[in-house]
Design a protein around this nucleic acid. Structure first.
Lengths: 191, 191
DNA sequence: CCATGTGAATGGATTCACAGCT
DNA sequence: AGCTGTGAATCCATTCACATGG
């Protein structure tokens, strides 16, 4: 596939594609374009995406259940090795086939599976406390769904998902489109 | 508050803050800084965020329920005026105090409340179909939670939330941090 | 001939630095 | 003095354009 084709399907110019890919070495063949399967493999290797990441999910409310039953994670190399909740009424029940365990089991699971990533779907009141527990147990990356900033020591990454921000982004695009008759350039991920 | 303080708390330079705010007019006072409450009010007005957006939610599974019970939407000016599902077993039940309605009621609700935004939390198989229904009923912005690209005609905005992307972002940050001993600059939304 | 990889040119955004206001 | 708003300088990403390789 040529950089032109690749770019067209991603909404980028051919030069952009070449410049970016060239950063990772000479992945194409002059006159022939890119062997995309090989390129993907190379990129995945070089960006640490050729491994399976074990993850834990803490907080089995609506979002927690949605996460545990979310198929695409597996295919993208994420393996849920434990789901946890504080609430003793929830502990012992099943979520997407997995038994919910008590927080007291957290550390053992993390150590056993060498887990580095945790998904946190808890109420905002518990967010910082649970984050601290995760970090104390050895987690170095947290995907946070609570609408609350969580602080963590250097060396621990936090990525937050805030539905409100996404909805605001959408409202702005709609407003702007109606306001100017010009669409918003959503970039590569517009749809 | 001065541009320096504002910048520090957002991870930006003072010059950046001043340049950006100046785009919207002279919102600060020389020698005194910015009156943030006023500035926020001005910005909200100028960016169409001083109105309440009625929204509908389609698909009352785990994510749909999470959305309907998500408090911050209300505070940020989004008002859920209807929740819908295809499944007749779900129709008539309650989600966060709201009765789930049949898809046949969708258009009437949208017209009645002049709804322009829809949140779509349906399986990926139904995503395009439901999107088409929403658009046909007059929706011009869709927040899509299905792990599937949805196409829409010009003039309709789509914002997709893909948990996998967020988790990949996190995994990359963690990997990069461990790989280089340098943290990743997460920008303004790092935590 | 076709398409990459890459220096050079371009353009837009960030930073500098300071006149002017409080 | 403290701080804004803004031209000028600087930086950096994108685009251009072409020498080189298949």
């Amino acid at each position: 596939m040529s950089s032109r084709e690749l770019g067209a399907s991603l909404g980028l110019t051919d030069a952009q594609i070449r410049k970016d890919l060239a950063l990772f070495g000479s992945l194409g063949q002059s006159g022939r374009g890119y062997q995309i399967v090989d390129v993907l493999k190379r990129l995945r290797q070089m960006m640490g995406r050729d491994q399976v990441w074990p993850i834990v999910v803490v907080g089995i409310g609506n979002i927690g259940r949605a996460i545990t039953s979310y198929g695409p994670f597996k295919r993208e190399g994420f393996d849920i090795v434990g789901v946890f909740d504080i609430d003793s009424k929830v502990v012992g029940t099943k979520s997407a086939g997995r038994t919910v365990r008590a927080m007291s089991d957290l550390r053992a699971t993390i150590v056993e599976h060498d887990v580095r990533l945790g998904v946190m779907t808890v109420p905002k009141e518990s967010a910082q406390g649970v984050a601290d527990e995760l970090i104390a147990a050895g987690i170095v990356g947290i995907l946070n769904f609570a609408p609350k900033r969580v602080s963590a020591p250097r060396g621990v990454s936090i990525v937050s998902v805030d539905f409100t921000v996404s909805l605001e982004q959408l409202a702005f695009q709609v407003w702007w489109t109606g306001h100017t008759e010009n669409g918003v350039d959503g970039g590569a991920f517009e749809s």
